[in-house]
Design a protein around this nucleic acid. Structure first.
Length: 464
RNA sequence: GGCGACGUGGCCAAGUGGUUAAGGCAAGGGUCUGCAAAACCCUGAUCGCCGGUUCAAAUCCGGCCGUCGCCUCCA
């Protein structure tokens, strides 16, 4: 079974075939850098990171482009409110974005283009669209002529006449059709601007992505991704511009992730119900967010609340339980063979699930079954090569999802000699059956975040 | 109003025509342990409601109810 990908354009799962064998050109809409990122942005980043990692696991060479929209109404507005230079604002949030990517263990994109670095390409594109009558200049800027594009609306399945009814699209004086959208906006006082054939101005909202995808990936790309709230108008307009410009179909697969929901509603800036990435990471590990996101299908809406977070923190601990060392050394026999079979089955099931439009929830199910098999084998005394091989399989597959089970704990490392000393003394207390004191040592360590567990071979500890 | 998605055990969530409906969390019982923790074993759902198609449906079709998204900036 080969990889199947759900395509928003056709509303169906389709076999994944790239334009160039073995190579994937992927463009994912990045953030408008004017404010702190919230966990919804992180969800999108993590989803497409998972897609990329899996494609690479399948052997594809992935060129991943993610843009920064650093010229935009919202940045200008923020600048006017705070008095800060608009480029200083965008740079601040670009820097923050890179820090988040690092903390969330999202693989960096191959290229991070910015609107401000793509102005000549944008101007050229708008000019060509004007020459082909797909665009027309007015006093306020240059607009895309929606009626000139016969298949406008094909992505969002919207008919132009429907868009008009029931909405409050105001017919601007200068627009021919209320659905026409700006490719180029004429400069207003105090706004950043670049020279152009239409006078000083700046790009409209959608044209940057078309120009950047074109510049860095070519006229046709394999995957175009983003949140499903971008389907209309952003991606619809991108298709209209790009295909009118190139005369070819733009992206083969349009992939959209569902929205993260907080208290039953979409998390968004305008609703003000957001949790920032920094706030989340202050209290939880990056892997908890990743597991939470991957435990459901990427196209579905996902509830985000403290219960779900805690559930996934415990689920993560369970995945990690399989990485504890073997206690026995049995390397042959039924138990060892059963474990090897479980590892093989996990691998097969994982790939089968992931091939079905990145069914991470199904894939995780197989990984949890492998966890059980590993722990059972450990209890049965299995060790040595078969045990290590099963653990390696688990690490490999969780790694494909971008989970990092093995933890380094620097704060624990510093305290280690002292904790060891306490446990050594506690062991002596237990020998002389001073259980009250021994339990107090354990309880106090627990309060400090050190989990003590007694086994046949002695006591172990780990940081909470 | 238009377009679209979803409704599976207490919670989260796979499965989309046919063996015993994955998995995680929580809960209860048990093994182990001085106790605890961890781990292991055991226990639970007929799939929103109604009707239809079919030898056979959670899975297809229709209706209803409910939740959510887009239509304005938005991952």
């Amino acid at each position: 079974m080969a990889l199947q990908v759900y395509n928003t354009l056709t509303r169906r799962k389709e076999p994944f075939e790239t334009i160039e064998p073995g190579k994937v050109r992927m463009y994912v809409c990045g953030p408008t850098v004017y404010d702190k990122a919230h966990v919804g942005h992180a969800m999108s980043a993590i989803v497409f990171d998972m897609v990329r990692r899996y494609l690479q696991y399948k052997g594809y060479d992935v060129i991943h482009v993610m843009n920064f929209t650093d010229v935009d109404d919202k940045i200008i507005k923020r600048s006017q409110e705070t008095g800060d230079d608009p480029f200083a604002i965008s740079q601040r949030y670009v820097d923050e974005f890179h820090r988040h990517i690092d903390e969330l263990r999202v693989l960096p994109a191959t290229i991070y283009p910015r609107v401000s670095d793509t102005i000549p390409e944008i101007v050229e594109m708008v000019q060509t669209l004007q020459e082909s009558r797909h665009a027309y200049p007015t006093e306020g800027g240059v607009y895309f002529r929606v009626r000139q594009d016969d298949d406008y609306g094909k992505l969002s399945r919207r008919k132009l006449d429907d868009v008009l009814t029931g909405t409050r699209v105001e017919v601007g004086e200068s627009k021919e059709d209320p659905n026409d959208f700006a490719l180029w906006k004429a400069q207003k006082p105090g706004e950043p601007a670049w020279p152009s054939p239409w006078g000083p101005g700046r790009p409209g909202w959608h044209i940057e992505c078309s120009a950047m995808a074109l510049k860095h990936l070519g006229e046709q790309i394999d995957i175009h991704g983003g949140g499903n709230d971008l389907i209309f108008p952003h991606h619809e307009n991108e298709i209209a511009q790009t295909e009118s410009y190139t005369g070819q179909s733009f992206a083969r697969y349009w992939m959209h992730n569902g929205m993260l929901q907080l208290s039953g509603e979409k998390m968004s800036k305008s609703l003000g119900n957001l949790v920032t990435v920094d706030e989340f990471l202050a209290g939880h590990e990056a892997d908890v967010l990743r597991l939470l996101i991957l435990s459901s299908h990427y196209r579905k809406p996902l509830a985000f609340n403290s219960t779900v977070i805690e559930d996934n923190a415990r689920a993560l601990a369970r995945l990690r339980s399989a990485l504890r060392p073997a206690v026995g050394r049995i390397a042959t026999g039924t138990e060892a063979e059963t474990l090897a079979a479980a590892a093989a089955q996990a691998r097969t099931g994982f790939v089968e699930s992931m091939d079905d439009d990145f069914n991470t929830a199904g894939a995780l199910g197989y990984l949890f079954e492998l966890v059980t098999a590993i722990n059972r084998a450990r209890d049965a005394g299995v060790g040595g090569e078969p045990f290590a091989a099963a653990q390696d399989a688990l690490l490999e597959l969780t790694g494909v999802l971008g989970l990092q089970l093995a933890t380094v704990q620097p704060q624990g490392a510093e305290a280690a000699p002292f904790i060891d000393l306490l446990l050594e003394l506690r062991a002596k207390l237990r020998v002389v059956k001073q259980y009250a004191l021994a339990d107090e040592v354990r309880d106090r360590l627990t309060d400090l975040g050190v989990v003590v567990e007694d086994t046949r071979e002695g006591s172990t500890w780990r940081m909470q």
